[in-house]
């Protein structure tokens, strides 16, 4: 069943990507074409076939020591904040989460 505009609107809202009405149409067309391309996935009998989530053979149990800053990766606060669009003091700053209206609260 093909995806509708409403489906795509829902996906875009979930993925936090705003779309204009025109973009919504294009995206709808694209997604339906892409999904068609994926059909071969379902062409095989996959009963009893284990999935391979990891293309790394038997690699397992990779763990690191509990040593503070063993590899010198920690960042100073200035480095940490330097790519942020908005900060206050030592913190990252975001606008109101629920929406701030004058007179609220």
């Amino acid at each position: 069943m093909a995806l509708t505009r409403d489906d795509v609107r829902g996906i875009a809202s979930y993925a936090r990507i705003a779309l204009t009405e025109d973009e919504l149409d294009e995206m709808c067309t694209y997604l339906n074409a892409a999904i068609e391309l994926l059909a071969p996935i379902r062409a095989y009998d996959l009963t009893d076939v284990e999935p391979t989530f990891y293309p790394m053979g038997e690699l397992a149990n990779v763990m690191a020591a509990d040593e503070p800053d063993e590899y010198g990766c920690m960042l100073g606060v200035e480095e940490a904040l330097k790519n942020a669009a908005s900060t206050r003091g030592r913190a990252f700053r975001v606008p109101s989460i629920l929406g701030f209206k004058e007179g609220d609260g």
């Binding site: 994926l38 996935i41 379902r42 095989y44 996959l46 076939v49 284990e50 999935p51 391979t52 989530f53």
Partner: peptide
């Protein structure tokens, strides 16, 4: 899709 794709990977 996702799960079968990983099976196909096998």
């Amino acid at each position: 899709y996702y799960y079968p794709a990983q099976q196909v990977r096998t």
